[in-house]
Write a protein that binds this DNA or RNA. Sequence first.
DNA 1: TATACATATGATTATGTGTTCATGTATTAA
DNA 2: TTAATACATGAACACATAATCATATGTATA
Lengths: 122, 122
Amino acid sequence: MSNCCDAADLIGSIEKAMPDDDALISVAENFKVFGDSTRIKIIFALEQAELCVSHLSELMKMNQSAISHQLRILRAAKLVKPRRDGKNIYYSLDDEHISSIIRLGLEHALEAAGSNYNEEAL
Amino acid sequence: MSNCCDAADLIGSIEKAMPDDDALISVAENFKVFGDSTRIKIIFALEQAELCVSHLSELMKMNQSAISHQLRILRAAKLVKPRRDGKNIYYSLDDEHISSIIRLGLEHALEAAGSNYNEEAL
DNA sequence: TATACATATGATTATGTGTTCATGTATTAA
DNA sequence: TTAATACATGAACACATAATCATATGTATA
């Protein structure tokens, strides 16, 4: 309990407007996906061309397993999508999702979570 | 080295267009700040009112130290700014930075890093 | 079918991150 | 100046995460 001053009303109203924990966690999870330079680099690369795992592995100078693990995270976030061609699996950006997430990432996620987030300020 | 097919040219050109590691790491660092639900919640709260540490601590039902540590990260990212009033330190969103980061978060960071990121698609 | 290639995935390990505890610093008031 | 309040910060610990290794799955080809 804070004693620094009486702001029970203010805190109460903010508390009511606060999205529930699940929503907050989900917002954070979405951002977490972009919070790794390996994944950022993969997104950059796929921005320019559809690439298979071996290409990405070579490009990033990381072993194939590491790339596959990261692609799994990107797939789960619907940021990339796979396309099999024979033995290879080509990855490309899932445009629909990446543009909406990148564009709306914050405003939408935050707003959808029920905040008073000011869209116009964006 | 990949043998799945010959794409040396493609990989080479993507490699050249790729921002350097420092830039990629910096992009990821920026997103990392939003990748924690406690920080998201603090941002939500400060979206509605300027609050001191005790208020945030009470609101989030977390001890004061945890809040201070998180505020330090948000300060370092220029997302919030402190204002001392007597014994209390009131935090508010650093509008200038938060709007630019939220709005441009991706496009600016990525573009500034030298990619061919398609701004119009945003 | 057997073999090789491309990718995925479970286990392990190293490193990073968030919270707590203890303590330090700054400000106010007695 | 001393005590109390508000906040910050370093250390320790628990937990999450990313890379690696080993291995499994899926596909093409001999």
